[in-house]
């Protein structure tokens, strides 16, 4: 099975506050570290496991600047067979559809049975996979949390749906799936793994190489644009209690009593 996995390099924001920069035009990136989008990491692991089961190749593709090379190497170290790096300044400011068009062009240069994306990335939009499927006229499923081969040319998949239920379907190949976290336990990649693939050749692609018209890409063509970042003014928010632990507890007990919280 030929599998293409689309990955994105994102800032690691889990443990630290995000500050704004350039008057809100960007976030403060000086102190940020970057790594692969968590959902994408699950997608690559899913692809590798599937390949190990039925054979084939896993190719990872990313769109980003030079520094995005790191995430491709990381996924190669995990066990992906090849990487593709789309690096073109003209793509900056693309909206979801713009990125989906680039990925469509990448996918058309190969012959993939399955295309995976993460369910969402740092912007929380969760849109590129579905758009890519529509552009390529392939079936799509979002929030996939289970994949197994189902005879020739089909997969049995599970989707996460409301209330934690799982919706099971059968899906024809080729198709596009967006992968939810928890589908597997991605393997660890250390410095050693990344060094081992340091010399692997990763083809660099730009809009021209993909046969894309630069004018139809990037910020200019985007129908959804980000104007600025901001930290929302706190609403009324909670009434914050103050005092020593004992005093806090006493106040809470009074509130709990009043609200029927002690039975």
């Amino acid at each position: 099975m030929e599998i293409l996995v689309c990955v994105k390099q994102v800032p690691d924001t889990a443990e630290n506050d995000i500050e704004l920069a350039k008057g809100g035009r960007d976030i403060e990136r000086e102190d940020l570290v970057y790594s692969v989008n968590e959902w994408d990491n699950y997608a690559v692991e899913a692809a590798i496991q599937l390949r190990d089961q039925v054979g084939g190749r896993v190719t990872v593709v990313t769109i980003g600047g030079e520094e995005a090379d790191e995430v491709l190497r990381r996924q190669l170290a995990m066990g992906a067979d090849g990487g593709l790096h789309v690096n073109d300044e003209a793509l900056e400011g693309s909206d979801g559809l713009g990125l989906a068009r680039v990925l469509e062009a990448v996918a058309q240069q190969g012959s993939y049975d399955l295309i995976l994306t993460g369910a969402q990335a740092d912007d929380g939009a969760g849109q590129v996979g579905g758009m890519l499927a529509a552009l390529m006229d392939l079936p799509f499923a979002a929030l996939v949390n289970h994949i197994e081969p189902s005879g020739a040319g089909a997969l049995r998949i599970g989707r996460e749906v409301a209330g934690g239920d799982q919706e099971i379907s059968e899906m024809d190949l080729p198709c596009v799936l967006s992968i939810q976290t928890g589908i597997n336990q991605p393997r660890y990649v250390g410095i050693r793994g990344i060094r081992k693939v340091a010399s692997v050749e990763i083809p660099q692609l730009d809009a021209a190489a993909l046969g894309l018209d630069a004018a139809s890409l990037g910020a200019g063509a985007a129908r959804l644009r980000r104007l600025d970042y901001f930290v929302p003014q706190s609403g009324p928010g909670a009434r914050m209690l103050a005092g020593k632990p004992d005093q806090l507890a006493a106040q809470l007990v009074e509130i709990l009593k009043a609200k029927g919280g002690i039975r």
């Binding site: 393997r187 660890y188 990649v189 793994g193």
Partner: peptide, 10 residues
């Protein structure tokens, strides 16, 4: 670690 078999918590 070499085989990537590290629990998520680590």
């Amino acid at each position: 670690v070499d085989d990537g078999e590290v629990p998520a918590s680590l």
